[in-house]
C-alpha cells in the first residue's frame, strides 16, 4: 500500500461506498420512516387515498400520550433486556466452549435438544412458566420475565457461540496449556476475548428478543411492577378502537434508547480480532 495513487483512489471509492451504504440503509428503513409518518398523522388522514408521504398536518398527540404513560415501561424493558443478556451469556458461553473445544460425549444429541426446544411454541412455554410461577409467586416480577425471556436466546446463544468458537485456532489453546493455564483460565482469558464478536452478536439478539417479547410478558406479567413496552402498547388497542398514532409513537420513542445502544455496540465490533491474536 505504498503506491502514491492508492490512498486517493481508496478515498474516492470509500465515499462511493458511503453513498451506497446510506442508500441501502434508507431503503431498509423506509418502513420505519412510514411508522414515524403514521405516528404523526391525525386519525382522519391515516387512510387517505393517495397516502401522504409526509405528515403535512402533524399531531403530537401520540407522543404526548407516550411520554405520559410509557417511560416506566421502557425502564422495565431495558432492565429485562440487560438481565437477559447476562443470564444468557453465563449459561451459553461455557457450554459453547465445551461443545466447540472439549468434544464432550453426547454433543450431537445435545445439539438436537437445542434445536427441539427452539421449536416449542412460545405459547406452550408461557403456559409452562405460568404453572411454575403461580406456585413460586414469581408472576409480575422482573426476575421471572428475565428467566422466561432468556429461553428464547439461550439455545441460540449456545449454537452460535459454538459455531464461532470452533474457529478459534487450536494452537492458541495449546499455547495457553503449555503456559500452565487450566481450562477455566484458558476459557476466560483466551477463548472469551477471541470470541468478542460472537459474544456481542449473541448479546445483541438476546437483548432484542427480550425487548420485543410479547407472549411471555402478556402471560406472566400484568401488574404495573413489571410491564414492558410491548405490553404498554396494548393500552392503545382497545377492544373496538385502536389509537395508531400512540402505538407508533410508542414504538418510535421506545426504539431510540435501544437504537443508540445498538449503534454504540456495533462500533465496538473490532475487525480481525483472531487474526491479530495469531500474529502476536
Amino acid at each position: 500500500m505504498t503506491a502514491l495513487t492508492q490512498p486517493v483512489r481508496r478515498r474516492h471509492r470509500a465515499r462511493w461506498k458511503t453513498v451506497l451504504g446510506i442508500a441501502l440503509t434508507a431503503a431498509m428503513l423506509f418502513p420505519v420512516y412510514w411508522m414515524v409518518n403514521v405516528s404523526l398523522t391525525r386519525t382522519e388522514d391515516m387512510r387517505s387515498d393517495p397516502p401522504h408521504w409526509f405528515p403535512w398536518n402533524p399531531t403530537l398527540e401520540g407522543y404526548a400520550n407516550v411520554l405520559d404513560d410509557q417511560l416506566p415501561a421502557m425502564t422495565t424493558s431495558l432492565g429485562i433486556g440487560v438481565g437477559c443478556v447476562a443470564l444468557t451469556l453465563l449459561v451459553s458461553a461455557p457450554a459453547a466452549f465445551a461443545l466447540a473445544k472439549l468434544r464432550p460425549w453426547g454433543a450431537g444429541p445435545l445439539t438436537f435438544v437445542l434445536l427441539v426446544v427452539q421449536m416449542i411454541p412460545g405459547v406452550v412455554m408461557a403456559i409452562g412458566f405460568y404453572a411454575v410461577y403461580v406456585r413460586l409467586g414469581w408472576l409480575n416480577t422482573v426476575w421471572g420475565l428475565i428467566l422466561a425471556d432468556s429461553t428464547i436466546a439461550v439455545p441460540f446463544g449456545v449454537l452460535v457461540l459454538t459455531a464461532f468458537m470452533t474457529g478459534v485456532p487450536g494452537e492458541l489453546l495449546q499455547a495457553a496449556r503449555i503456559d500452565g493455564a487450566g481450562r477455566w483460565r484458558t476459557f476466560v482469558s483466551v477463548v472469551l476475548p477471541l470470541s468478542r464478536n460472537a459474544l456481542l452478536t449473541v448479546s445483541l439478539f438476546t437483548f432484542l428478543w427480550a425487548w420485543s417479547d410479547f407472549i411471555f410478558a402478556s402471560t406472566l406479567s400484568r401488574n404495573a411492577d413489571a410491564v414492558p413496552v410491548t405490553l404498554g402498547i396494548y393500552a392503545y388497542i382497545g377492544n373496538n378502537t385502536t389509537q395508531w398514532n400512540s402505538i407508533m409513537a410508542t414504538a418510535v420513542v421506545a426504539s431510540v434508547p435501544a437504537a443508540v445502544l445498538l449503534v454504540v455496540a456495533q462500533r465496538y465490533v473490532a475487525g480481525g480480532v483472531v487474526a491479530g491474536a495469531v500474529k502476536d
Partner: peptide, 24 residues
C-alpha cells in the same frame, strides 16, 4: 377499526360500524 379510519377520510358514503364510534 381500519374500516372506521377509511370512513373518517370523508371519501366514503357509508361504513358499517358499531355503537362505539358514536363519539368519533
Amino acid at each position: 377499526n381500519t374500516t372506521w379510519e377509511e370512513f373518517l377520510t370523508g371519501d366514503f358514503g357509508f361504513a358499517l360500524n358499531g355503537t362505539w364510534q358514536v363519539n368519533s
